[in-house]
């Protein structure tokens, strides 16, 4: 008896949980499963303008819902993914793209890390060269003053 009651409770809870989930992102009348997958893939690449840390797919903001509907409508009109992205960029700028496009304004963003890497490599190279030169110089001076038996410090003390 008790067990049956628990079962009923569990089923009820699960049903409610399912309903709550369905309300978060409302279902759309997709033509087929591949279209649904395409829609999900596309909305995951786009950022909600209102809540910038959420994708259009995840966000529950009213504007995200409107934009999802708009994307769905555009898909029904046979627009390609690139056309839909361009549609949104024309209105909301590159901010809606998680992947920023390569253009003069984003060169620093794309190549900045490479620049820093090259700078770091340059500093390391100069330091190694300098250390080699110092070592050679100190070993030369050690040869000339062979009477000095104290172990030489090799310049690590910076």
């Amino acid at each position: 008896m008790m067990r049956a009651l628990l079962h009923v409770l569990l089923v009820a809870l699960l049903t409610f949980a399912g309903m709550a989930h369905a309300q978060a992102i409302e279902p759309m009348p997709f033509a087929d499963h591949s279209q649904e997958l395409r829609f999900q893939h596309l909305t995951q690449q786009l950022r909600c303008p209102m809540c910038q840390n959420e994708t259009l797919a995840d966000s529950n903001a009213p504007i995200a819902r409107d934009l999802r509907n708009q994307i769905f409508q555009l898909m029904q009109q046979g627009r390609s993914d690139d056309e839909i992205k361009q549609y949104l960029v024309d209105r909301y700028s590159d901010y809606v793209l998680y992947d920023p496009p390569l253009k003069p304004g984003t060169w620093l963003l794309w190549f900045g890390p490479l620049l820093i890497l090259c700078g770091g490599a340059g500093v390391v190279l100069v330091a190694i060269r300098k250390r080699n030169r110092d070592e050679r110089a100190s070993s030369l001076s050690a040869d000339s003053m062979s009477a000095d038996n104290t172990p030489t410090d090799n310049g690590d003390d910076w």
Binding site: P49, M50, P62, I63, D66, L67, Q70, R91, Y92, S93
Partner: peptide
């Protein structure tokens, strides 16, 4: 419906 606002790039 807020659909024209999308053309204006309104998000809030």
């Amino acid at each position: 419906p807020g659909s024209t606002a999308i053309d204006f790039g309104v998000y809030g």
